[in-house]
Amino acid sequence: MSASLYAALSAARHCAPGCTAKDEVWRSGKLRLYRYRSISSPSSAVPLLIVYALVNRPYMMDLEPDRSLIRGLLSRGVDVYLIDWGYPDGADRFTTLEDYLERQLAGCIDEILKVRKLAALNLLGVCQGGVFSLCFAALHPERVRNLITMVTPVDFHTSTDLLSKWARKIDVDAWVGRGNVSGEVLNQLFLALMPFRLSQQKYVDLLRGDVDQARIENFMRVERWIYDSPDQAGAAFREFVVWFYQQNRLVRGGLSIGGRSVDLRTLELPILNLIGTRDHLVPPASSTALRDLTRSKDFTTLELDLGHIGMYVSARAQRQVPPAIADWLEAR
């Protein structure tokens, strides 16, 4: 068994993530906007734009045929767009949250609305991308028809939020300086949240059971994704940590982007909030706080027995998440 597992790992070392055909439809600087090719008849004229986080790569949304949130949505007739923020480098160190929201995200949305001749689209924000989506919807409610937030932190000061406890003590100005923040360092912090499970047990678990090439390939793709950590544009990172993690402005108020106030209480659109009850990065309580902060009369919370990453790549997620999103959108 040992040799065959080793051989399977070796054979899988070049497995590339991403499986569904897509076209680049717009670009701005390092950002790329993709539209996925449909694989079934469309269920609605209104497309869904997926806004992923800055801290990891968005191909996790389409990892492999049997572990692809995007493929699951396409198979149910959802028209899917995805933002790839790219890899910031030294030239992006002064890029702010305003740049990300009011130029890059707004640019993507304007482009889709212009081409599709629509007034508004559906947004799906994942993790930090969910925070961006909430802010954008609050700033431009006329351009968002329905909002889906997935494993999205809202209340950054809940008692079980270890990352937040650490972040609140960090001198962000000293850390960022006038540069970017290393993706590797950030990744080490994420791994340090559960060091024994994330840097030991998962490898030893490979020894369990018979060698299954598909399982090994999936493992290698996830492994690649975990360590594919873009550096963070310094100015935006500083703002995100200070405004959200340290000052908890989504809950306490006082958040403004580009000189305009961001108040979640102005949100009246339909919202679907997807929460992983075993999420170690975004505690469920951090996400559930959203319900009491908006004025939406059409608010759905869906709690799933999944972790942060399992929400989009676990086998159970494939059965539960795409149908839940597609059905919710179709009803609206």
Partner: peptide, 20 residues
């Protein structure tokens, strides 16, 4: 056991000091 320590004040301060 690690979680109990990592959630504590001393750990957060030491981590912040190391980063700074």
């Amino acid at each position: 056991a690690y979680a109990r320590v990592a959630h504590g004040e001393a750990f957060g301060v030491a981590l912040a000091d190391a980063l700074k």
